[in-house]
């Protein structure tokens, strides 16, 4: 697992005054799951689009399975499979008809295509629903067919762009298991997500991306070392954390997610509002707990529960950017 199948060098993409990707360089090794972890708008999809030859980089190059970007577009596309963030299927066609259509675009046909359609339907657990129209499927089932379409031609490298967005926990579990099975079968996967848990569970290596830049890259152990022995206190609130904090914290949380409420409290390194949670980075959770809860109570925050977490990727992101992952 040492040979890179993908190498990106200083990829940049500019739209007018906005630079969506700012000189990203990384490699994906054959047989690994490599995750690009970052909040929405960090540049993950733009990076995938450049590597899929859907958009041309403003500058920089890449090489996939020996084929150059820009330049060798069709061969790059033959080597990769793409599972887009959207459910890119035709609702009025059956699952099988959808898969047959996508297979034909990869030069497949006849019995070979029919056999592969059977195989991928089996792989995603929908063999008995092949003849049903996609519009009759649940969101999770559509996601699985969306993945199946990317697997038909047995790509050397599979791009999966946030494949679990908007689905129920059961379907998410199924998809995560499927991704691990693909890796076990020898497929290389480039996986983008803004869910820390998914990156932690799946990835051999992780690239953390924020505001168009790759700010950290390595195995999870390598990345968590960045924050040393930091721990995380996760305060679960009954309401949207950013709004709650904004009301008592001078509005700071409403703009960039940073929470100043705990500044100066013993052992607190930083805090950010994420959904219905406040993530507090501390040197020692047990020592800092009383001070953090005290300040929250004084400020009138209604804490529902508290988790104490060992160093993780979210703490890394918080440490590197001062913001939470789901800002």
């Amino acid at each position: 697992m040492t040979e890179p199948i993908l190498t990106a060098k200083e990829l940049r993409k500019r739209y007018g005054d906005n630079e969506a990707v700012r000189g990203i360089s990384f490699s994906v090794l054959r047989g690994e799951i490599f995750s690009l972890l970052g909040p929405n708008g960090a540049g993950k999809t733009t990076t995938i689009n450049m590597l899929s030859c859907l958009i041309e980089p403003t500058s920089g190059t890449a090489e996939i399975a020996g084929h150059a970007i820009p330049g060798d577009t069709l061969n790059v596309r033959r080597a990769i499979g793409v599972v887009p963030q959207e459910i890119a299927l035709y609702d009025s066609l059956s699952a099988r008809q959808n898969l047959e259509f996508w297979g034909r675009l990869y030069d497949m046909g006849g019995k070979e295509l029919s056999r592969r359609v059977d195989e991928v339907l089996e792989q995603v657990g929908l063999s008995d629903r092949g003849k049903d129209k996609v519009k009759t499927f649940s969101g999770g089932m559509k996601r699985r067919i969306n993945i199946a379409a990317g697997l038909l031609h047995k790509p050397q490298l599979l791009f999966m762009d946030e494949p679990t967005v908007g689905i129920d926990p059961q379907s998410r579990r199924r998809i995560l298991d499927m991704v691990k099975e693909l890796r076990d079968q020898g497929m290389t996967v480039l996986y983008t997500t803004h869910y820390m848990e998914e990156a932690e569970e799946l990835s051999d290596r992780v690239g953390i991306i924020d505001q168009g830049k790759l700010i950290a890259l390595g195995t999870q152990d390598e990345l968590t070392k960045i924050v040393g022995e930091q721990e995380t206190l996760r305060l679960h609130l009954n309401e949207e954390a950013a709004a709650a904090v904004a009301a008592i914290d001078g509005g700071a949380a409403a703009t960039d997610g940073r929470v100043n409420l705990f500044a100066g409290s013993a052992g607190v390194l930083g805090a950010a509002a994420v959904d219905h949670q406040i993530v507090v980075s501390v040197t020692d959770a047990n020592a800092a707990l009383a001070g953090v809860v005290g300040r929250a109570n004084t400020a009138g925050l209604a804490i529902r529960s508290i988790d104490i977490e060992r160093p993780n990727l979210e703490a890394v992101f918080l440490h590197l950017t001062g913001r939470g992952l789901r800002d």
Partner: peptide, 14 residues
């Protein structure tokens, strides 16, 4: 809008 056009273009087609 639905992403199927991009998916087509991510396949080896011109």
């Amino acid at each position: 809008r639905e992403g199927t056009l991009a998916r087509m273009l991510a396949a080896p087609v011109t």
